[in-house]
């Protein structure tokens, strides 16, 4: 009797999981109704001729630039926090600041990016301003992820290097860091997935609806999938085939980055026994 009750209760608990899985299916089903719009020419023809080429490349430019700025800062910060900082009040303040940074709404990050990077630093509406703004959003993810990856490396790795006469920094960058690299890369990818579809943060800082060709320097504005989708739907009220195409391409980019991160993590957890 008790056993049956338990079974029923567990089954009820399982319903929300099914709802989540159904939601994924639902989203994929809706998007797949527009899959006929997805042709290879759409990706390779210019916006001026009805394609979305500049948007795709612009999105990738923004992503790569933002990660390029955030990765060195984030990884070095995490090394300091894990290997050098004395776990005192200072470390706690940094910890708190990181958590709060991760929680700042993206639209507020966008406002700040506009006043600080675009206006005060004079970058204007440009790709560089977008990189720096998006960097603010990725940074906490990369620091947290790198911290976790570094903590998983057994201290015997570092001790072995130190015993051979390496300095602390040497031991970290030539032994600990390579061992932690897969974990760090996973988190960089997760950070990329988080900002690939980000709209609010780049709304005022780096995007325009149409550019003539690709941006030639970081100080030029850029086109992005998310921004174009946003403006086309809300401002122009457009719901043409191209809108569907943009949505599907954006979805595929984001989901494949996230999936790559997840697969990489599972693969390395199996391969490196000390990570368990």
């Amino acid at each position: 009797m008790n056993h049956l009750k338990e079974k029923i209760f567990f089954a009820i608990l399982g319903i929300p999981v099914l709802i989540c899985l159904a939601a994924i299916l639902w989203i994929i089903l809706i998007l797949s109704t527009g899959i006929s719009t997805l042709r290879w020419e759409l990706l390779t023809t210019s916006v001026l001729q009805g394609g979305i080429f500049e948007m795709v490349i612009g999105t990738l430019y923004l992503l790569i630039g933002a990660v390029g700025v955030a990765t060195p800062i984030g990884v070095l910060a995490a090394i300091y926090l894990v290997e050098y900082s004395s776990k005192g009040r200072f470390a706690r303040i940094i910890d708190q600041a990181l958590n709060n940074m991760a929680g700042v709404p993206s639209i507020v990050v966008g406002l700040f990016g506009y006043t600080f990077f675009s206006r005060l630093l004079g970058l204007g509406i440009s790709m560089a301003a977008g990189w720096l703004t998006l960097m603010l959003m990725i940074l906490p993810i990369i620091v947290r992820g790198t911290e976790e990856a570094l903590k998983m490396i057994p201290s015997s790795f570092k001790e072995a290097a130190l015993a051979l006469g390496a300095s602390r920094w040497r031991a970290i960058h030539s032994v600990v860091l390579p061992a932690a690299a897969p974990g760090i890369i996973t988190n960089i990818l997760l950070g990329m997935a988080r900002v690939a579809g980000e709209t609010a943060a780049i709304l005022f800082t780096s995007c325009v609806l149409v550019t003539r060709g690709l941006p030639k320097s970081p100080l030029e504005p850029v086109m992005a999938l998310a921004f174009n989708l946003f403006v086309k739907i809300t401002v122009l009220g457009e719901s043409s085939e191209r809108v569907f195409g943009i949505a599907i391409v954006l979805f595929l980019i984001v989901v494949s980055i996230a999936a790559a991160a997840i697969v990489l993590r599972i693969y390395y957890r199996r391969k490196q026994p000390w990570l368990r």
Partner: peptide, 13 residues
């Protein structure tokens, strides 16, 4: 994966 879907896609849907 569900968490990684961008909000603009949710808005569109």
């Amino acid at each position: 994966l569900l968490a990684s879907i961008p909000s603009i896609i949710y808005g569109f849907i």
